[in-house]
């Protein structure tokens, strides 16, 4: 391993200049180290959402019937549809990277556009879901919620906190994808130097991972 990590830019790098393996020929570019740094950041995200999942589990074990009731008030088809939207956005993100690796910038940009579109669809659907609950007077700090049993309050407060944090990540992720799209369009991200897109992809898949757990835990425990 040490030989590859210490591989310096050299004359042999030029021989690779036209294929996809030429990253050692770019001074200061170390995609493995970059991805490692991204993974370290993702582990801090695991702590953020992980702590929330622990809190969720604790409340669930304390108020199982209220959580089942609360879960029953969420719309399963809508949640399932949003799951499909987010999973598909993960596919288009992965395809954007795969396309750029093959030098297909046009397809890569299309896939990035599709990913942002799906992110938007997800947020709009989530906003309607929240909107329906807010119309019923159920939101953190509302008088209606305060009048409910403690278990119900715990459920809805956790619901808003966790889906809220998740939606925030979706919005940040969509912004990052737009940013990397701009850099891809002006070739600062290109087939030989695409770790920025890979790292933003990793972030996007993390957002997907969190939702993979949020969906069954909130929508399907009735």
């Amino acid at each position: 391993m040490s030989d590859s990590l210490s591989a310096a830019p050299s004359a042999t790098g030029d021989a690779h200049a036209d294929d996809h393996h030429g990253h050692y020929g770019v001074p200061g570019y170390d995609p493995i180290a970059s991805r490692m740094g991204m993974w370290l950041f993702l582990f801090t995200e695991l702590l953020l959402f992980g702590a929330l999942f622990i809190a969720f589990a604790a409340y669930l074990s304390k108020y199982p019937t209220y959580f089942a009731e609360g879960s029953g008030s969420l719309n399963v088809p809508v949640g399932a549809f949003n799951t499909v939207v987010l999973l598909t956005s993960s596919l288009t993100m992965a395809l954007a990277i795969a396309a750029l690796q093959r030098g297909d910038k046009n397809l890569s940009i299309k896939m990035l556009n599709a990913t942002v579109l799906f992110a938007g669809v997800f947020c709009v659907i989530k906003a309607f879901e929240w909107g329906a609950k807010i119309e019923m007077g159920i939101y953190p700090g509302s008088a209606t919620l305060a009048a409910m049993d403690q278990g119900k309050q715990a459920f809805y407060n956790m619901y808003y906190t966790m889906t809220g944090f998740h939606a925030l990540h979706v919005i940040i992720g969509a912004g990052l994808i737009l940013w990397v799209k701009k850099r891809t369009l002006d070739d600062r991200v290109n087939p030989k130097r695409l770790v920025l897109m890979e790292n933003i992809g990793l972030y996007w898949h993390l957002v997907d991972l969190v939702w993979i757990f949020l969906f069954p835990l909130y929508y399907l425990i009735a």
Binding site: M1, S4, L5, A7, H20, H21, I32, A94, A98
Partner: peptide, 11 residues
């Protein structure tokens, strides 16, 4: 392992 670190895997 060696190959993994030198080449970009294209899925």
């Amino acid at each position: 392992d060696h190959a993994h670190e030198h080449e970009v895997h294209i899925t």
